[in-house]
Amino acid sequence: MKRTVAVLVAILLVSCVKQTELEYEFPDEKGFVDNSVSLFMERRCGSMDCHGQVGRPLRIYSQRGLRLDAKGGRNGETTAEERKANYISVIGLEPEELTIARRSKGNYVDFMLFKKPLGEEGLGVKHKGGPVLAPSKTDPGWECLRSWVFDTADKAECEKAASALDPPSP
């Protein structure tokens, strides 16, 4: 009897250890920062009326919204630390789903980072800001996200997306 209990406890412990051994696989941080995925999200998602505020689940830090700290004042340039924090925000949104997507090499798109910006109108999910991207090769924002999640961030598309819809000063 004692041996049976010991075996059961051992199995239980092993199964617990297995639970914590999930290995994540995320799109890379360097591509997020250097290839302007962060810049695109700062401009298009990170204003203070959207994801640039502490109340949002997906926080985006930048010169144009929430600051990571106030060392550089309110309007200083977006810092490297803020871009790193943006990366952590994005991969932390649904880490398991992002891992599955990354491993799927383009086949798995059923996760929030892709569904939210489409809004319900674009066959995604409800987004308070409405549909802000279209699942199309002609939308540089969509291509920027897709390229980063599945392969290597397409810097040209990300920069195009960052400046798209950016009106000049009045």
């Binding site: 298009r44 998602c45 204003s47 009326d49 010169q63 309007n75 950016d166």
Partner: peptide, 16 residues
């Protein structure tokens, strides 16, 4: 006074 950021959604300026 120019505004550095864009307004992306909220047209009630005093919201922010």
């Amino acid at each position: 006074a120019p505004m550095i950021s864009t307004v992306n959604r909220e047209a009630s300026c005093n919201y922010c």
